[in-house]
Amino acid sequence: MIRPQDVLARAAGRAAGRAAGWSDVEAGRAILEFIFLGLLLLLPLTYLVLTAARLQAASFSASLAGREAGRAFVTARSDDDGYARARAAAQLAFTDFSFEDAAAVSVACDGSPCLRPDGTVTSTATIEVRLPLVPDFIASHVPASVTISSVHVASVDRFVAR
């Protein structure tokens, strides 16, 4: 229920505000300022989160691909089979994180043949991560990608007969 005293108090408050130099012209302007400043601060923060998430995904993918390529290689029956298995295992890890196009894996051995007892196999996974939302005309002038790599060393079992 609205009381007459409340109506009179509001009217008196408005009159006092006008006397102090306030006007109804500024009514509602605070919400516009809040939205403008909110967007101004939120857009760079959103970009930062997107970029950090993409780099973290690349880091996980490179680590997983290098480890799985090394494991797949040392459990193969022959060197040729090992290279094929390492590429397949790394490709699965790259695909899990959507890095099929800009990723590669390389396998190196410490001697010949690679799968000799107590041999070591080094697998290196490399991913070229394009930064999100960078247009091509800017990418030609500034670095628009980051390279993430991971190295994993796997040892061949001493007691496995091949």
Rank of each mutant, 00 (worst) to 15 (best):
D157C: 13
T51F: 08
F137R: 10
A15P: 07
R67H: 13
V74M: 02
H141W: 14
T46Q: 00
G17L: 12
D118S: 15
R87Q: 14
T95R: 02
I127C: 02
V107S: 05
A19C: 06
H141Q: 12
W22Q: 09
S61Q: 07
A9E: 10
D81C: 10
A62E: 08
F94K: 07
S155H: 14
V49K: 11
I31S: 11
C109M: 05
G111A: 10
F159D: 06
A53E: 04
P143H: 05
D81L: 15
V156L: 15
E33I: 14
C114Q: 01
A16T: 04
G119E: 02
D24E: 09
A104Q: 13
F73H: 01
R85C: 00
G70D: 02
A103G: 07
R158K: 12
D110K: 08
V153K: 09
A65K: 12
G21N: 14
A88I: 08
S155M: 15
A11Q: 14
A102S: 10
A161H: 12
F99A: 09
A62P: 09
F36D: 01
E68I: 04
D118G: 12
C114M: 11
E100P: 03
A86F: 12
D6M: 09
S149F: 06
A84K: 02
R3D: 03
R158M: 09
P4T: 14
G17C: 14
I31G: 13
S123P: 02
I138V: 13
V134K: 02
E33F: 08
I31R: 05
E33N: 02
G17H: 11
G66C: 00
L55S: 10
Q91E: 03
L50R: 15
R158I: 08
D96T: 07
Y47H: 10
S23W: 00
D24N: 09
F137S: 09
V151H: 10
R116C: 02
I148Y: 03
P117T: 11
S150P: 03
S123E: 07
A90E: 01
D110N: 15
D136I: 04
R29A: 15
S61V: 07
A139V: 08
P135Q: 07
P135W: 07
D136L: 11
S155V: 11
L40M: 11
G119R: 14
L40A: 11
P113M: 05
S140I: 09
Q91H: 04
A69F: 06
F34W: 06
A125Y: 00
E128M: 04
H152K: 00
G66V: 04
T126Y: 02
R158C: 03
R158P: 03
T75S: 13
R87V: 12
L92C: 01
A27F: 06
V156F: 07
V25G: 14
P4C: 05
R54H: 09
D96W: 02
T75M: 13
S106H: 00
I2S: 07
G111W: 00
T120H: 09
R18M: 07
P132C: 00
E26P: 04
F94V: 01
V153A: 12
P4D: 12
R77G: 08
A62Y: 03
A69E: 06
V134P: 00
S59G: 15
L64E: 04
